Simulated assay, not measured.
Amino acid sequence: MVQFSSAQLDLAFAALSDGTRRGVLEQLGGADASISDLADQFRMTLTGMKKHVGILEDAGLVETAKIGRVRMCRLGPQRLADVNRWLERYRQMWEARFAQLDDVLNELQLQENRHARRSTR
């Protein structure tokens, strides 16, 4: 079983809790972008976008690199993969529980049908 750092996941989920930051990740999923371009796309100040990108970078969801005078951003795919693996564990658990519930409901339905056939005789 994959073990995850609680602090790592807390940072990732906190970063993902904001709509602007999720939007930044969507934008970067299509292509790398500068902080200035992201600020323009989201109609916010450069300072505001730097803060959002900083939170994403601290969580490992985004990587930045200074190229000349421009700070470029790109996805940090490993952390998204880590979050996805963590979520996948819970998806599998819930699927197993729902499958068990389906089994119980099917058995109850069979019992009800048997009872109904006996009652109509």
Rank of each mutant, 00 (worst) to 15 (best):
R85T: 15
Q27S: 05
D10H: 10
T64D: 02
A59I: 02
E112A: 14
R117I: 10
K50T: 01
Q109E: 15
Q27M: 09
E88D: 15
V24L: 13
I67C: 06
R91P: 09
G60E: 04
A7R: 11
I55N: 01
L16A: 08
E57W: 00
S6L: 09
A15I: 10
A59P: 02
L38K: 01
S6Y: 04
L56K: 02
G29L: 12
M72F: 06
W94K: 14
R69I: 04
H52S: 05
L61M: 05
V2Q: 07
L75T: 07
R22L: 13
K50E: 03
T20G: 06
T120F: 01
W86N: 13
R89W: 04
D103I: 07
R118E: 15
Q78D: 14
I35T: 05
D37W: 03
G48R: 02
A116C: 06
A39T: 01
E57A: 06
R22I: 09
L105G: 03
S5D: 09
C73S: 09
T45K: 06
L75S: 07
F13L: 14
R79G: 04
G29Q: 09
G19L: 14
V83L: 12
Q8P: 03
Q92K: 13
Q27A: 06
T20D: 12
P77Y: 06
V104F: 08
I55C: 00
L38A: 01
K66L: 10
M44F: 00
L75F: 10
N106T: 14
A81K: 15
F42V: 00
Q109R: 13
L105S: 07
I67W: 02
S34A: 06
F13N: 10
G29H: 11
R97Q: 15
G29F: 11
G60C: 08
Q3R: 13
R118K: 14
G30C: 07
V2K: 08
A65H: 02
V62S: 03
I55R: 03
S119P: 00
L46V: 00
M49R: 00
M1G: 13
V104S: 08
L16N: 07
A31T: 12
A33V: 01
L28M: 10
N113H: 09
K50G: 00
L101E: 08
E26S: 12
L87D: 08
R69Q: 12
R89G: 13
Q27Y: 06
G19P: 10
R89E: 12
D40S: 07
F13D: 09
T64Y: 03
R114A: 15
T120W: 02
D32I: 03
A14E: 13
L46D: 00
M49T: 00
D58W: 00
T47D: 12
D18G: 13
D82T: 15
G60R: 02
L105E: 10
G48I: 01
L38R: 02
K51R: 11
L101D: 04
L25M: 08
S119Y: 06
G76H: 04
R121V: 08
L105P: 02
R117Y: 07
R89A: 12
G68C: 05
R118G: 05
D37M: 07
D103S: 14
R121E: 11
L56G: 04
L46K: 01
R71E: 10
I67F: 05
D18N: 15
H115M: 14
L75E: 07
A99N: 11
P77R: 14
G60H: 03
G76N: 07
F98T: 11
E88A: 14
R21G: 08
S5A: 07
N84P: 03
T64R: 13
D32R: 10
